[in-house]
Amino acid sequence: MATGGRRGAAAAPLLVAVAALLLGAAGHLYPGEVCPGMDIRNNLTRLHELENCSVIEGHLQILLMFKTRPEDFRDLSFPKLIMITDYLLLFRVYGLESLKDLFPNLTVIRGSRLFFNYALVIFEMVHLKELGLYNLMNITRGSVRIEKNNELCYLATIDWSRILDSVEDNYIVLNKDDNEECGDICPGTAKGKTNCPATVINGQFVERCWTHSHCQKVCPTICKSHGCTAEGLCCHSECLGNCSQPDDPTKCVACRNFYLDGRCVETCPPPYYHFQDWRCVNFSFCQDLHHKCKNSRRQGCHQYVIHNNKCIPECPSGYTMNSSNLLCTPCLGPCPKVCHLLEGEKTIDSVTSAQELRGCTVINGSLIINIRGGNNLAAELEANLGLIEEISGYLKIRRSYALVSLSFFRKLRLIRGETLEIGNYSFYALDNQNLRQLWDWSKHNLTITQGKLFFHYNPKLCLSEIHKMEEVSGTKGRQERNDIALKTNGDQASCENELLKFSYIRTSFDKI
């Protein structure tokens, strides 16, 4: 039985969820670079991206490699990797027998973001014989899940209580170790020597080791999670996991709180800001991140802002960003909400898709409305799209047979046209069989910064309504002859009103 693990408890099935942008060198404390989270699957090609990484700022997932063999891993080693800020997950990587050479110096898994409450997941690794993470000293947050690894031993010899604050939620089941077939031998045991430290858990006094050649490092209890030197002297209180010299914040392997210019500090002093819960960055760093993602459509890219001495992905609820200094300031009234469309555009074809934009005031991208039916549609669209004030790209209304009016965009005031449909149009209306009105132009103002209007096959939309939009939106004169079809717009509506004058002759039985 794995020490510190839980057996036999019912657990939810383990679901495996399925960018080499360097964020800056980590400095003297770390020998390499800070790398983003990685999802490495199918083959070993991307694994080489770990070569210079000291910190993975995010998670590391290595999974679904069915053609790899043990010899493929023999020359692979990433000794610079010290810390993973989120979680480490391995799933069905064939041929991998140990992690001792792959990650010989991995010391800390912070667990800032977890995989279903777990910071370390080893699942269905069919050839893994031992973990071998002999320098792993601290899992700051989260638990361990090690399950269905039929060859995995050296679990009962690990004292997880020396690595985690609590072992109650560890789930370590259905491994070879369960069948008591392992016969784990710690260093020196074969020669009758006791080389590794022994600890007591559940009444068992057991030597602690990761492999037959690597003991588990056990520091004096007084050192807590700070770690200790090879001689057993406690590291500085700002260290986490390990250090090369005692009581020196510049000799830590990793930091308990924050890293700044080669030393570990309790908090980031001005003019620095907390970033990702582990390091200090200056304003320029946060500003660069903001600008890199301002026009990016890459998933996970955030326009970072500053709030409460932190550089964070977005302002919290009730705050909006001051564009001059990136500071989050309290909103006066309802907060603006910028919604970034991942692929640059979004099609609204149902109430469900409209709900995804609920509360958005600025759309960074283009909207395509293609709704053919739905219950209580006008009210639903207004509830979900009615706060949109600005669209950076274009607005396209296409084959939306259920629409009679666009009044559900009740606050839309600006279409920038930074991206144009077919390279020309910022407003595009095609084949809307029941569209009769755009907006009530006596109450609604709309500016279209650039781009043209396109109207074709809107049989109940009168040309007068379209011409009014040209005047109000500032697009009059931009359109070419064929942009607004004269014969297919309003051709099934009563669009022309003329005053009919009647004269009559009164007659009676005795007068003409």
Rank of each mutant, 00 (worst) to 15 (best):
W278H: 10
H48E: 13
L332F: 15
H236R: 01
R279A: 10
D178Q: 13
N257S: 09
I163E: 01
F258W: 08
S225M: 06
G111C: 01
V253M: 15
V253Y: 15
M321S: 03
F78V: 04
P269S: 08
G262M: 08
N43F: 07
E57Y: 09
K176A: 04
N295W: 05
L44K: 08
R297Y: 02
E168L: 08
G227C: 05
P31F: 12
E57G: 03
L102Y: 01
L326P: 11
T107M: 06
P70Y: 05
G142H: 01
D86G: 04
V121Q: 01
R69P: 08
L88F: 09
I82N: 04
I146D: 00
L114N: 04
I146Y: 03
P246T: 02
I56H: 00
D288S: 10
G203A: 09
E97I: 12
A119Y: 00
S324H: 15
G241V: 04
F78Y: 10
G192S: 13
D177C: 12
C280F: 01
F115R: 06
P36I: 07
E151F: 04
N309R: 12
C215I: 14
H59V: 13
I40S: 00
W210E: 07
A156N: 15
F283D: 12
D248Q: 12
L44W: 11
N138D: 08
N242T: 09
D169S: 05
C35Y: 00
C223S: 03
I306C: 06
K191P: 08
N257P: 00
H307Q: 07
G241D: 02
A254I: 03
S323H: 14
V93R: 00
R298Q: 02
H127V: 01
R256V: 11
Q303F: 14
Q276A: 09
I146Q: 03
G58E: 00
R263E: 14
H59S: 09
L99C: 04
R74Q: 05
L326S: 06
K176G: 13
D248W: 03
R141K: 10
C255K: 01
L174T: 14
P270H: 09
I146G: 01
R297F: 03
D277E: 14
L102F: 13
H212P: 07
T250K: 11
N175S: 12
D184W: 15
L102G: 02
R110F: 04
L240Y: 13
F103M: 04
L174N: 09
G132R: 01
E238Y: 04
C243M: 00
P334R: 15
I62L: 06
H28I: 06
P36D: 01
S161A: 14
C235K: 00
P197L: 09
S77A: 02
F66H: 08
M65R: 02
C35W: 00
A119L: 00
S213T: 03
L289A: 09
D184E: 10
I306M: 04
L90E: 00
Y304G: 04
S98F: 02
D277M: 05
C243P: 00
I306V: 12
Q245I: 09
I56D: 00
L332Y: 05
R256P: 02
F258H: 04
V265C: 03
C243R: 00
E57V: 08
R279Q: 15
A156R: 11
L174G: 11
L233E: 15
D261V: 10
G188V: 08
S143W: 11
P36W: 05
R298M: 08
E168T: 10
V93K: 00
D75G: 01
V93L: 15
T329Y: 12
P197M: 09
V265I: 04
E180T: 08
R110S: 09
A119E: 00
F66I: 15
K100P: 02
